[in-house]
Design a binder for these strands. Structure first.
Lengths: 188, 188
DNA sequence: ACCTGAACACCGTTCAAGT
DNA sequence: ACCTGAACACCGTTCAAGT
C-alpha cells in the first residue's frame, strides 16, 4: 500500500541534518534521530555517507561555508564589494549558528581557504600589493568569523538573562567592519 | 597500606580535564576517562561539579579565557598595550586549542565581556570616545578569536597534507593586528 | 562528607541478513 | 542496490549503598 518513498540521497540527508541543528541545536543531532526524521533506520544513512557522522558534519560545514565564497562581479569599489560579502557571509553564519563550532574545528580545510583566496583577489584588483592582499583577506575573514561567534554567544546569553543591555549587533558589526576596511585602506 | 590519596577538588578536576583535552582532543574527554586519570570512579566527580559535564566544560573555558582579561598597567601607548594583550591572548588560546570550540558555544557569558570591557578601557584611556572604544574593543577581540580559529584549523590541515605551503602564522597574525590597530587609529 | 556499584537511557558503528 | 535487526562498545547521569 504505502507509496514507494523517494530514495535516500546525500543531499536529503544533509538537509534534514541542517534542519535538526537549526531547530534543536548541534547536540541533538544523532544518527538515530536523523534516521527518524527521514523515516528510515539510522543504519541506512551509512550507505550514503560511508564515513558516518564525520562525513555528515563535514557536509554541514560545506553547505554553509563553502558555497558563498565568490564575491560578485569584478566591477565596483573594493570596499563596497568586501562590505557586501561580509554582510552576506555573516547572515549565512547566523542563519546556521549551530554549525559555527564545527567551522572552528579542523573540518573542511578547503572551505575557508577558498573564501580567503577570493577575498584576496578582490583586494588585488583594488590595488593592494600581493602580500598586503593576503594579509588583508585573512584579517577580514578572521574578523567576520570572530564577530559572528561573539554574536551567537551574546544572543544566547541575552535570551537567558533578559534584556539588560540590548546590543544592536548589526550596527556593531557594521562599525567594526568599517574599522577593518579603514585599516585595509592604509595598506594599499 | 596505600597512602591516603589527596582528596578531589574542583581545581584538580579541571586541571586533569585540561590535560586530556590538550593531549588527546576534546572528543576524548569523557567523565569515565577523567575519573581514571584522577584514580577515582567517574561518579565521584559529580560530588564536586554538581552540574556534571556541563560545569566541567564551563570550567575549562573559564580557565583559559577569563583569566587573562586585564591588560597591564595604565602607562604606555594604547597600541603597545593592545598589541601585547593580543599576543598573550593568542598564545593562551593556541596553547589550549581544543577548548576553542567551547568558547564559540554559548558557554561562560561573562568571560568574553569582561575581556572586552578591559580592552575598551585601554582605548578610552588612549583617547577614544566612548562609542568608538566599545566598537574598537569588540573588533579587536573578534579579530583575535577569529584568527586563532583559522590558525588551529590551518595547523591541523598542514599536519594532514604535508608542508605544501608553509604559512608563518605568527607573522600573519602580527600583520593583521597591525591592520586592525591602524583602523583603530582612524577612529580616535 | 566523600566515594562506589549497579543500573538506565542513550550514543556511533559493524555486520550479517533480508528484499 | 538499498535497507533492516541485532549486537557491541561505549556514553552521561541517577540513586541507593557503603565507609
Amino acid at each position: 500500500m504505502s507509496h514507494p518513498r523517494e530514495p535516500l540521497t546525500r543531499d536529503r540527508i544533509i538537509d534534514a541534518a541542517l534542519r535538526i541543528v537549526d531547530g534543536q541545536g548541534l547536540s541533538r543531532l544523532t544518527m538515530r534521530r536523523l534516521g527518524d526524521s527521514l523515516e528510515v533506520e539510522a543504519m541506512a544513512i551509512y550507505h550514503h555517507l560511508p564515513r558516518g557522522k564525520e562525513a555528515l558534519l563535514d557536509g554541514l560545514v560545506e553547505h554553509v561555508a563553502v558555497h558563498p565564497a565568490p564575491v560578485g562581479g569584478a566591477g565596483g569599489d573594493w570596499r563596497q564589494r568586501l562590505a557586501a560579502w561580509a554582510d552576506g557571509y555573516r547572515d549565512r553564519l547566523l542563519g546556521h549558528a549551530g554549525v559555527l563550532p564545527l567551522l572552528v574545528t579542523r573540518r573542511n580545510a578547503v572551505a575557508l581557504s577558498m573564501t580567503a583566496a577570493s577575498l584576496q583577489e578582490v583586494l588585488r584588483q583594488g590595488g593592494h600589493p600581493e602580500a598586503a592582499a593576503a594579509t588583508g583577506a585573512h584579517t577580514l575573514l578572521s574578523f567576520v568569523i570572530g564577530h559572528t561567534a561573539l554574536e551567537v554567544r551574546g544572543l544566547a546569553a541575552r535570551q537567558a538573562a533578559g534584556p539588560e543591555d540590548t546590543v544592536d549587533w548589526s550596527a556593531r558589526f557594521t562599525a567594526g567592519l568599517g574599522l577593518v576596511l579603514a585599516g585595509l585602506a592604509t595598506a594599499r
